[in-house]
Measured scan of single mutants.
Amino acid sequence: TGEEYIAVGDFTAQQVGDLTFKKGEILLVIEKKPDGWWIAKDAKGNEGLVPRTYLEPYS
């Protein structure tokens, strides 16, 4: 389980392990790392690192 967040901007993977997403996408945050990069999963089940500055809590 995780917390749902909504993307407030588009993000394109910079390196292997990053997750590309579009503004408005709902992501499930699995782990919040202290460096500001969180592990998240998208609706298709893809998992990767995302920058927390692009996310806001979804309710």
Rank of each mutant, 00 (worst) to 15 (best):
V8F: 05
T20Y: 04
G48M: 02
L27I: 07
I39M: 14
L49K: 14
V8M: 15
P51Y: 15
K23M: 09
L27H: 00
W37M: 10
G17E: 05
L27G: 00
E4M: 13
L28G: 03
E3F: 10
G2W: 10
R52S: 12
E47H: 11
G17F: 06
D10F: 04
D10G: 07
G2A: 12
T1F: 12
W37A: 05
L19P: 01
E47F: 14
E3Y: 10
V16S: 14
D35R: 04
L28H: 10
L55P: 00
G17C: 06
G36I: 06
P57A: 10
E25G: 04
F11S: 03
E56S: 13
V29W: 01
K22Q: 09
E47P: 05
L19H: 02
L27S: 00
D18L: 15
P34N: 12
D18P: 04
I6M: 10
W37Y: 09
F21L: 05
P51R: 08
A13H: 04
L55S: 00
V16R: 13
V8P: 01
F21C: 04
Y5F: 10
G2N: 09
T12V: 10
Q15L: 10
A43C: 08
Y58Q: 06
V16T: 14
K32C: 03
T53H: 12
A40V: 09
D18A: 15
W38V: 03
N46A: 10
A40Y: 02
G48C: 02
A40H: 00
V29M: 02
P57F: 09
Q14C: 14
V8R: 14
G24V: 01
E3P: 07
K44E: 11
G17L: 04
K23G: 04
S59R: 13
V50H: 00
N46M: 11
T12L: 12
T1P: 11
A13L: 04
Y54N: 06
P51T: 04
G17Y: 07
P34K: 09
F11L: 04
E4K: 15
A43V: 12
K33H: 11
G24P: 01
A7C: 07
E56P: 01
G48H: 02
R52W: 14
L19T: 01
A13C: 05
V16L: 14
L55G: 00
G9E: 15
G9Q: 14
L49E: 05
T20N: 08
G48T: 01
G36Y: 05
I6K: 07
T53R: 12
T53Q: 11
D18F: 15
S59Q: 13
F11D: 01
L55Y: 00
I30E: 02
V8Y: 04
I6Y: 06
F11T: 02
L49V: 13
Y58L: 10
K32F: 08
G48R: 01
A43P: 08
E56F: 11
G45M: 07
D42N: 15
W37R: 08
L19G: 01
G2S: 12
L55R: 00
L27W: 01
A40R: 00
K23Q: 08
G45V: 01
G17H: 07
K22W: 08
G48K: 01
D35S: 11
Q14G: 10
D42R: 02
T20K: 04
D35H: 09
Q14N: 11
G9A: 15
A40E: 00
T1M: 13
T1N: 14
K33F: 10
I39Y: 12
D10A: 08
G9H: 15
Y54P: 02
Q15N: 13
W37S: 06
K32Y: 07
I26N: 02
W37T: 08
F21S: 01
T53E: 14
E3T: 13
D42W: 01
K32E: 04
P51D: 11
E47R: 09
D35K: 05
E3L: 10
G36F: 05
V8C: 08
L55M: 06
G24E: 03
W38D: 01
V16Y: 10
T20L: 03
T53F: 12
L19A: 01
A13G: 13
W38M: 04
R52H: 12
E3G: 09
Y5W: 13
D10C: 06
I6L: 08
T1R: 06
L28E: 06
N46T: 10
E25P: 00
A40G: 04
F21I: 11
V50Q: 00
D35T: 10
A13I: 03
T1A: 14
A7F: 02
E3I: 11
P57G: 04
K32P: 03
I30M: 12
Q15Y: 10
V50P: 00
I6V: 10
E47V: 13
D42A: 03
Y58S: 07
G17D: 05
F11A: 02
K33P: 08
G2R: 08
P34D: 11
V50L: 03
S59H: 14
W37G: 04
K33I: 07
K32R: 08
K23F: 08
Y5R: 02
T53S: 13
V29H: 00
A7T: 09
L19C: 02
G48Q: 01
Q15I: 11
L28F: 13
